[in-house]
Design a protein around this nucleic acid. Structure first.
Lengths: 191, 191, 191, 191
DNA sequence: GAATAACCGAGACGGTACGTCAAGTCTTGGT
DNA sequence: ACCAAGACTTGACGTACCGTCTCGGTTATTC
């Protein structure tokens, strides 16, 4: 039983779509969510405003999709040791996060998620879940290598890692680097 | 030359000041930071807009002060045991956080802090610091009672607690309650 | 060399054409020129917008043609007396004019003509001229019957009649009916 | 019993008001009603759009008021003879009407009045009525001077004059000037 | 009877203007 | 110097149409 969604009329332009996302991300990185205007996005993307509003219900949805679009593929590190893998994960997170765009993206996500539980739920599902699963694989391999005790709760460890990253991102630690800070918490919970 | 800033003319009305804060908090709880307007605050407080802008540079500062105004005194629990104290701290945090106003206040803080590092710095200093110090006292007493190892880093433990609270607030855990979630992380780092 | 413009390809659909005119007139009567949209016409006529723009350069031209399409044949009354004929002409004009569509059609014509002299010229030529000629015939017959003086300027009388109709249509007289109003002016100029 | 309309707050700026009207009239003369934008008016008047929308419900109302504002004082001519007076009235009407602004103003009035009977009613009351009264005075004096029969209906003569002016404005006569055209109709009805 | 050419409905495209809303500033008369 | 009220400029919002363009698909005429 197919759901015969045969679209009629001129199809939506892929170039426009990408130009919109590109412009949105550029502006997000430059001036941040609040100060960026849909009008400016349209202008930079050389696109009519209606082309944006045909795709998205509003600025919020547009930016959510733009951020979504830069989500990188989740790569499961395989360095052969638990800490090698964890360090790879942390470094990867740091790489994504520590540039203007990453910072603004995280800020936007946190901001939206904290004032809108639905957004939080969606984000948790679409972004966090794949990473959680990747982390579970890493822990499982460590268990096989006997690097950690067998009853270690991978989900909980992942949450501690995420929580510390978030916290360190918002309130940067003064004495250590952000990465060491996270690593230290991981050591404690993995013990 | 004295810097005796003796204000001339009619002094600023205290009633107005409090009405502004009250109205701001009510609206914050009802509709959240973005959707609340300074105009509505002024109207609800039966105050002219200029009376607000005379006191604050803008909406951001006003809301910051409004949230500041509900900050409760930091009380250092003293139950006689480390876990009694920690549980008291967690319960207190939960009490403050789990109502519409608390949620919006936290959302506003996180949102502002994540997109504005200056705000984050101020908040860390004015809000987090006193709590950090209270926590340090709790840990110190536990050390005296020999409940924890002597080289335990109180600051780090505090940060893990804060981080988990923040994370659990934004992305509520599904399986456990928020409080147990935080407590579990604490157990791991105190060990 | 023949100018035998024999069109190739699929001929334009007559049903579509008529559906467009029908929808245009309906909307014109309902909401008036300004508030009617080409999009709505296309939708009501179950026709693509391009089918409209293939036929007309724009909304203006489309509506002009739609109004044109309801133009009735000019009938020269022949009641046997000048006033019988004139009354027939007036009554006919009233019949055409006093319904929603007629009112809007006149409004559209006047509006266009008053802000666009080219439109006025075209309209004067295509619509007014045949009526002027019919009126001239009526006057000529009256002259033969000796009902009016022989040097009566039929064109001028026609213009007075038209002018009074127009004026009475825009600013309806309060004391008399529109028709009596016109008739009274006619009596004066025919004397 | 006074109707205590004591306005509070900053009063509406008279300069802004006048700048808006001035800009509106300029644009009306230059590009006409349809092609003029409220945005352009605001810009030319160096005024925020909201300042316009605070005063008027929309473009239509603004333009109506702008046209209203150039209405000249009605002057009752007194040349000593009926035809001297009438000629003065006609020449005055011609003077007002035959420039870009006048043409557009008339076009706008006719257009609005013909598609909106409420506008027609207002206009008839505020613009036509004073002129009608002035004309009545002129006729009354002529009656005293025995230049016309005593039972001449001044209102009706005025309507014929107005109607012919309107008609001649929309469909300019080819053989005679607009003014002679009107005069000729007047002669017929005054007889 | 296949190729060609113009048509068709649908709907996306880049634009322009609309009318609304809020931010932060300014100006009243009055306390 | 303060106050409430409500004006002011600025600038973004999201909506509605305009007239054009692009799909897949449909008739007629021409080869």
């Amino acid at each position: 039983m197919k759901e015969d969604n045969k679209p009629q009329g001129r199809p939506r332009s892929i170039q426009s779509h990408q130009a919109i996302l590109k412009a949105a991300l550029e502006l997000l990185a430059e001036v941040g969510y609040e100060r960026m205007s849909v009008e400016a996005i349209a202008q930079n993307a050389k696109v009519g405003k209606s082309t944006i509003y045909r795709r998205y219900k509003g600025k919020e949805e547009l930016v959510a999709d733009a951020i979504e679009s830069i989500r990188e593929e989740v790569v499961i590190p395989d360095t052969g040791s638990l800490w090698g893998d964890i360090n790879a994960l942390i470094e990867n997170a740091a790489r994504i996060t520590f540039n203007p765009l990453g910072k603004q993206a995280v800020a936007t996500i946190i901001s939206s998620a904290s004032s809108n539980s639905e957004f939080a739920r969606i984000y948790a599902h679409k972004y966090l879940q794949p990473r959680r699963e990747a982390f579970t694989v890493v822990i499982k391999k460590a268990k096989i290598r006997n690097e950690v005790r067998l009853d270690l709760d991978a989900d909980f460890v992942f949450d501690v890692m995420s929580g510390m990253m978030l916290y360190g991102l918002i309130f940067p630690p003064t004495s250590e680097t952000w990465e060491e800070y996270v690593r230290r918490a991981m050591e404690a919970v993995i013990s």
